[in-house]
Amino acid sequence: MWPDEDETLALLRGAQRGDSAAVEGLLERHRDSLHRMIECRLHAGVARRIGASDIVQETLLTASRRLAEYLQNPSMPFHAWLRQLARDRLADVYRRQLAEKRDVSRERALDAGRESSYGAAAELRDDQLTPAAMMLRQELAARFRQAVAQLEETSREIILMRHAEQLTNSQAAEVLGLSEPAASMRYLRALRQLRAILGESAAHWLG
């Protein structure tokens, strides 16, 4: 979920006046939402080399350098602008990764092992769990990641937005350029596809 829009607008006005504290607050309050966005799209093989936090930090540094340009012509909401910067940075990371792995067999292995880090939170150690319960949780998390990866891109995106990024339907609709009813219908279709893939374990993730 994105930070409160009214507070964001107030900080943007402060940034336009040259208030450095407003600039810092503006960027910092979007850190968590950017982290959720990037983490769920960062494949495990890439995440072993560069973490979501690193990409978030680089995105915020870019935003800081380009903020004056944005303020002169805010053609989109601030959070949408940050998302675009983050997606550009993520694309750069993958381009560099592919450039470093020109060997065809290694690229195929990377593609075959593609896994989002989405669901990693579910795999964190819980001292209250028995070893068997921990193994089950990890197995379910892996199954969920694999199921999401099998969805077509439009379905995968809205599942990630609603579940990993915790966006509301109206926020997802804005990002996707859809009406709220259309976004809701796309989400419901994606849920049906995901339930069909997950089978009995769907209840664990989707209720």
Score class of each variant (00 low, 15 high):
Pro181Phe: 13
Gln166Asn: 13
Ala121Lys: 13
Ser179His: 10
Arg186Tyr: 02
Arg114His: 15
Arg114Leu: 13
His43Val: 10
Glu7Gly: 11
Tyr94Gln: 09
Ser20Asp: 09
Arg143Ile: 09
Arg137Pro: 08
Pro77Val: 01
Gly18Leu: 03
Arg192Thr: 11
Glu5Met: 10
Arg95His: 12
His163Val: 14
Thr154Ile: 07
Pro131Gln: 06
Arg106Ala: 15
Asp4Arg: 15
Met76His: 09
Thr8Gly: 09
Val46Gly: 00
Ser184Gly: 05
His43Arg: 14
Gln138Ile: 04
Ile55Gly: 02
Tyr94Asn: 09
Gln193Val: 00
Trp205Asp: 02
Arg31Pro: 12
Asn73Cys: 09
Thr168Phe: 01
Asp32Phe: 04
Ala109Asn: 03
Pro3Phe: 02
Ala91Ser: 15
Ala202His: 05
Glu24His: 15
Gly113Lys: 11
Glu107Tyr: 11
Gln146Phe: 06
Thr59Cys: 03
Glu24Thr: 14
Ile159His: 02
Gly199His: 08
Tyr70Asn: 04
Glu24Ser: 10
Glu153Val: 06
Ser75Tyr: 04
Arg195Ile: 00
Gln166Ala: 14
Asp92Thr: 12
Gly18Trp: 11
Leu206Tyr: 07
Ala47Asn: 07
Gly207Val: 00
Ala63Tyr: 05
Tyr118Lys: 03
Arg137Lys: 13
Leu194Gly: 01
Asp92Ser: 12
Val46Asp: 04
Asp32Val: 11
Trp205Met: 03
Asp88Tyr: 13
Arg96Ser: 13
Val23Lys: 13
Gly207Lys: 02
Asp19Tyr: 04
Asp88Glu: 10
Asp103Asn: 13
Arg95Trp: 08
Val104Pro: 00
Ser105Met: 07
Val46Gln: 08
Pro181Arg: 11
Ala120Tyr: 12
Asp32Arg: 14
Ala99Phe: 11
Arg106Ile: 14
Pro3Tyr: 05
Arg192Ile: 00
Ala112Pro: 00
Tyr94Met: 08
Arg41Tyr: 04
Asp54Phe: 01
Leu61Ile: 09
Ala147Gly: 06
Arg108Met: 14
Asp54Trp: 03
Val148Ile: 05
Leu140Ala: 01
Leu198Met: 06
Thr62Trp: 09
Gly45Pro: 03
Arg87Cys: 04
Arg156Asp: 11
Leu136Met: 12
Ala133Ser: 07
Ala80Arg: 12
Ala120Gln: 08
Leu194Tyr: 00
Ala164Thr: 02
Asp6Phe: 07
Ser64Pro: 00
